[in-house]
Design a protein around this nucleic acid. Structure first.
Length: 352
DNA sequence: AAATCGGGGAT
DNA sequence: ATCCCAGATTT
């Protein structure tokens, strides 16, 4: 009975996929490199957002050797605006590892794949199934939702539920894992959607326990999170002889490796008391005269909200550290450096 | 187990 | 405004 249902599910899904599967840029070649790049970009990021980045990235780095040889600033520049920049740094590191430790040969085994930075169990399963057509399961947001509904799993999110979902995903994968896993993701994205699932168009409708129990809108269960804390910060556009000062953020942590106009936390009171503005900057290493506010930017991050106040400033005295992480750059030169979305808006405000 | 890590699309 | 996206890594 269970075996019959299993083959029933894969048969229905594969037939549906032939007629309704998405035509996506990374589904033309199935080379390990392009599958890998797409999988990393697609982590926590929607397909439509990824597509232009994917094209540009492969245009800049057509091979894993080209990626391995590239400077990190250029890799981050191609990633600029996509978010979760550790993905880009890990992708770059992993490319070097494959070129050096694996002689340029992309691994085709689970144990080797998960040694590469940025590749966890699900991305490894995706690479093995999509690039090599090996029968490995995946468990992304789409698959979690489809399986949770299909088997009416009422557990709260967490390790316990994940273990059950991995077991279901593994039990369902047929020999044509490439098409099956693609179909599972497409079904989740286009039919078994988070809100307003289109159960009338679902090939698994008659097998779906969630639909049978009218739970499709309630599943998967989610835990609610509290309000995000607000961080108020300032950034300075410091001028000196038609150039502006930028520095590189630490490679670890938030927006790691990106460049910025010096940014620090401030208290809201310091925004209004004109003369207090000189006290805003503690760690700059040199003295400036702070001018008027020129821009205010709000940005929501995963775990906090940012309110960023940008001020014009003029170099006064002293000197910043003389290393490659601190630069005076012309307006035209700013285009070479990778910035976060917020600081990209500052660049645009200065240029436009 | 919980926190960290971006930015935007959809509603 | 909220939810969530082809998750991984660190704490």
């Amino acid at each position: 009975m269970v075996l019959k249902t299993k083959s029933d599910i894969s048969r229905r899904l594969l037939r549906w996929f032939k007629a309704h599967g998405r035509d996506l840029p990374w589904r033309s070649a199935f080379s390990p490199y392009t599958v890998w790049v797409s999988e990393i970009m697609l982590q926590q990021t929607q397909v439509e957002t990824v597509i232009p980045y994917y094209r540009r990235f492969l245009s800049s780095f057509p091979t894993i050797q080209a990626l391995a040889k590239a400077p990190q600033d250029l890799v981050l520049k191609q990633w600029e605006g996509l978010g979760y920049y550790s993905r880009a740094r890990n992708l770059h590191r992993a490319a070097k590892q494959v070129v050096e430790a694996f002689n340029g040969r992309f691994p085709d085994q689970m144990d080797a794949l998960i040694t590469l930075p940025g590749i966890g169990k699900s991305t490894a399963g995706a690479i093995l199934s999509l690039a090599y057509n090996q029968p490995f399961p995946i468990l992304d947001g789409n698959v979690k939702r489809v399986l949770t509904r299909l088997f009416a799993l009422r557990a709260l999110p967490g390790a316990g539920l994940d273990k059950i979902l991995w077991a279901y995903s593994a039990s369902l994968v047929p020999s044509d894992a490439r098409s099956f896993n693609s179909a599972l993701m497409d079904l989740g994205a286009t039919v078994c959607r988070p809100r307003n699932p289109v159960c009338g168009l679902c090939p698994l409708k008659t097998l779906c326990q969630g639909f049978e129990q009218h739970l499709q809108e309630l599943l998967p269960l989610k835990k609610k999170r509290g309000p995000l804390p607000l961080r108020v910060q300032s950034a300075l556009v410091i001028w000196k002889n038609k150039r502006v000062f930028i520095r590189k953020r630490p490679v670890k942590g938030l927006l790691g490796g990106l460049w910025e106009f010096p940014e620090e936390a401030i208290k809201k009171a310091n925004l209004t008391g004109g003369t207090k503005r000189l006290e805003i900057y503690q760690n700059l290493g040199f003295q400036v005269n702070v001018g008027e506010a020129i821009l205010k930017i709000r940005q929501t991050f995963t775990h906090f909200k940012l309110e960023l106040h940008i001020f014009n400033a003029e170099y006064h005295s002293g000197s910043p550290p003389r290393d490659k992480n601190h630069r005076w750059v012309s307006l035209a030169g700013l285009r070479e450096f990778p910035f976060s979305a917020s600081h990209k808006k500052i660049v645009e405000a200065l240029s436009g």
